[in-house]
Design a protein around this nucleic acid. Structure first.
Lengths: 149, 149
DNA sequence: ACTGAAAGCTTCAAAAC
DNA sequence: GTTTTGAAGCTTTCAGT
């Protein structure tokens, strides 16, 4: 799969705003809308494009607290059962199996610090195999982007 | 801003695939396409919808390593100058100012472990004020989603 | 790999409920 | 205030180049 300059323009525009009209891009690069469309289909089939997503503003839903939590597990064979339980907690938006101190590392979004504390002490600490957690609350996010080339 | 059942269906469908035809949703809920469209405009203006993004598959671009890096700063007033430098590193996809051990906490994506090591030792360690870093490499990601209600 | 045309979808304003 | 209508523009598909 090789990507030329036109593909890069298409991707750049749509990463920024997935609703940019294809005809706008077509006129910008000087080929027909159908040609742009065919390139997009090809990029989708090549697996480079994972999908198109509406991005929600969590703050508008009252989710103002973002935190990262390192989870210690008693034994690494408890990983899959713990993940199963973590998936049931909708506030957890990412989970990773990581090298280093922690077994599981999660990103979590809550409405406030009280909710975060409750999730940590009740929902997460009570999962079988979870011995301890370490929490980093995000006070400010300055970078949020994608890899695009 | 109140969100009813129809709005929830619209959001659910578009979070999953932002290219779902509005008319498909319209037929599903039994109102016209234009009505769905007007609800969307309202949701956009209400700030609930942050945008529509094409999501790229980093693996297709050769980025197979994801890591989290905690960065220690000599002094907290070096934060903004450090962020300025971190923004220049395209592999850094998130940065947070966090409570806890670290001053800055980043998510980074690299093509391989060698590139990660290079970025840590050359680009990040050489930023003024950065004294030390701690790295957690993600070996497996099981959860990746958004808050939607 | 690109074009052009037909069918379906989105968008916007105005009117209807 | 939300919904439908209708017209213009955009997307999608496909035969043809």
């Amino acid at each position: 799969m090789k990507i030329d300059g036109i593909d890069k323009i298409i991707i750049k525009r749509l990463v920024n705003d997935a609703r940019t009209p294809i005809l706008t891009i077509a006129r910008e690069v000087g080929i027909s809308g159908a040609a742009i469309h065919q390139r997009l289909r090809k990029l989708e089939k090549s697996n480079l494009i994972e999908g198109y997503k509406l991005v929600i503003n969590p703050k508008a839903l009252g989710y103002t607290t973002t935190a990262f939590v390192g989870i210690f597990l008693d034994a690494s064979n408890l990983y899959s059962s713990a993940i199963k339980r973590l998936k049931e907690i909708p506030e957890i938006v990412e989970s990773h199996y990581t090298t280093g101190n922690y077994a599981i590392f999660i990103k979590i979004m809550c409405k406030n610090n009280e909710d975060l504390m409750h999730l940590l002490n009740k929902d997460i600490q009570n999962i079988k195999g979870v011995s301890r957690t370490e929490t980093f609350i995000s006070l400010d996010q300055q970078i949020d982007r994608q890899i695009t080339n």
